[in-house]
Amino acid sequence: MSNTQPLLEVRNLRVEFPTRRGTLVALDDVSFEIQPGEVLGVVGESGAGKSMTGAAIIGLLEPPGRIAGGQILLNGRRIDNLPYKEMRTVRGREIGAIFQDPLTTLNPLYTVGRQLVETMTTHLPIGPGEARKKAIEWLELVGIPAAAQRIDSYPHEFSGGMRQRVVIALALCAEPKLIVADEPTTALDVSIQAQVIALLKTLAREKGTSMMLVTHDMGVIAETADRVAVMYAGRIAEIGAVRQVVKHPSHPYTIGLMGSIPPITHRLERMQQIEGSMPRLSAIPRGCAYNPRCPQVFARCREERPELTPAGETRASCWLYDAESEQQVLRAGAHA
């Protein structure tokens, strides 16, 4: 990594949900950073905490969820403990957000133009007239045909893919430096997904915007991201350059995940899959959360929780890559 200050720095983030049956820890000790202009992919199964991480960054955790520990820094400034009013000026202006389902993200009662104009006039020192001109430019930029006419259309007059383009324009129109895109293509037709991803990628590069791209689609990550974080049960299992994580994964979970992508070169009798399922938040096992499913589990995994440590070309939270455990693994191997 370069020596420049990271745009976003998440340090030991912990998110809790107080419930009647005790506190659930939804995110535990999550740390990563995003450099200016970088695209970080975040993958994992449903409930691994990917979307929650995004929500915590933009300060819109669903109550009663709350940040219980750690820090989030944007350009070196803490934003996790900002009062609502100050955080409002960060949202949209410094961090743009894209949500999963474009059919529900736009207010049905206002034209897309009005929604763009209000976003820009809220954050930028421009009047409604100029904002409208820019709104048309943005709609053209995200590939809405006949933007000058379509600006006065209502969301329901657009298709799903077009609406997601409008959402992208809304997220980018106040020129934020970071985009948090939460499964931006999951709700779209497969044929549209590639277009929307390509658009996001192009715009981010043109505008020099960093992006945190949350998805469970490894294909999207491999195509778009510079680095990737693999999440499991509220923690980061592995993080590293996307090529390394895809080609040479270190964490057994990542290895399993990559193994479950069907190859296109030959037919498989049966798809590879990881045995078992991710634990519920209320029943995360002691030690490494992955230990009940891990094919390489050993004693220490059931007792102690691993931290992210250098593992090959990437960083993984796995005891296999800890110097102390090597002896144990060897011994375990000898017994077998």
């Binding site: 000026t89 389902d101 976003t119 809220t122």
Partner: peptide
Amino acid sequence: DYIKFARARGLTNRAVNFGH
């Protein structure tokens, strides 16, 4: 979602609560 998105766009509370 559209209220959450309106907040994510950084609109003022007033605009979100009354406008949207």
